[in-house]
């Protein structure tokens, strides 16, 4: 990247820069920084939204350490992220490579992108309906084949995987197209050289495609992992956290504490922790991203 300082322009461009970032800075200060600080303060209070906040020091954080449901939510969220990102990334790379090697059909790419255009809530409802235990089409097919029906959302062993799968369905096409675009940046000559050397598809994929794709993949991961940690809509519309606490992801638990149970201070404290988790994950990925950049160029 072109961050190397060029000594030809000694004058600072602070004035024009301030003008150009002014609107974004306004939005940032008012709708990102201020609410974050306010939320951090609220995490030290007891606040039920309808009344006014009462300062309680670190009590919310002490409660959190002892709250089994909170720790469970952290575990469930991590499980979801691993499953969702796992499914999504592997399938997207596979699909992108298939498209890259087989076809440039806009129709196929267009179809794959369709789910991404539909709202999360709608996607969740659609699959909730299709995966219904008794009257959903998927179980009707499973039953017709002679297999035992599966309670996709109701069975503890399936529920997180199901939710991860539903979100994979929505994001797969988009992720695959991003990877596909990355593949197109790999010069055709590289493949030609590989073909001349007599390398098979499989070998070409592992030896050439994947290493050259790494920077793009890391960028895709930075975006998708941050999003996956904040899963909410899909769970809220389908299981509502159940059965038991099996799918009570962190963001849903935060929402419940804040808006259904009136413990906004406690919810804010958990948000602070979620923020720290995300920051940690992002930091790790940024290091990977930086490591990846030297690969491509």
């Amino acid at each position: 990247m072109s961050t190397a300082a060029v000594a030809r322009r000694p004058r600072s461009q602070l004035g024009p820069a301030l003008v150009m970032i002014a609107p974004a800075a306004l939005g940032f200060l008012v709708f990102y920084l201020y609410p974050t600080l306010r939320g951090a303060y609220l995490s030290l209070t007891e606040y039920n939204v309808l009344g006014s906040p009462v300062f309680v020091g670190l009590r919310n954080y002490v409660d959190m350490v002892q709250d089994d449901v909170f720790w469970n939510a952290v575990r469930v969220t991590l499980l979801y992220v691993v499953l969702n990102i796992g499914f999504q990334t592997v399938l997207a790379v596979g699909l992108a490579v298939l498209m890259h090697r087989l076809t440039k059909s806009v129709l196929i790419r267009g179809s794959l992108l369709l789910p991404y255009l539909i709202a999360n809530v709608v996607v969740a409802l659609l699959w909730y309906w299709m995966l219904d235990y008794s009257i959903g089409i998927v179980n009707a097919v499973i039953d017709a084949v002679g297999l035992p029906q599966v309670a996709f959302f109701g069975d503890e062993t399936w529920t997180v995987a199901t939710i991860a799968g539903v979100n994979t369905w929505r994001h797969l096409g988009y992720t695959a197209l991003l990877v596909f675009a990355g593949l197109q940046m790999i010069p055709a000559s590289v493949y030609e050289a590989a073909a001349v050397d007599g390398a098979g598809e499989w070998r070409t994929f592992w030896r050439i495609t994947l290493p050259l794709l790494r920077p793009v993949l890391v960028l895709v991961l930075v975006i998708t992992v941050t999003g996956a940690f904040q899963v909410f809509d899909t769970v809220a519309v389908t299981t509502g956290g159940g059965p038991g606490n099996a799918s009570r992801v962190l963001q849903l638990y935060i929402y419940e504490q804040a808006f259904a149970r009136g413990h906004f201070g406690y919810a804010s404290a958990m948000s602070v922790v979620l923020f720290l988790i995300l920051a940690g994950a992002a930091f790790a990925q940024m290091r990977l991203l930086r490591a990846g950049e030297s690969d491509l160029t």
């Binding site: 709708f31 201020y34 974050t36 904040q230 948000s271």
Partner: peptide, 9 residues
């Protein structure tokens, strides 16, 4: 920053 965190403020 989780959107849920900033939504109420």
């Amino acid at each position: 920053v989780p959107p849920i965190f900033t939504s109420l403020p």
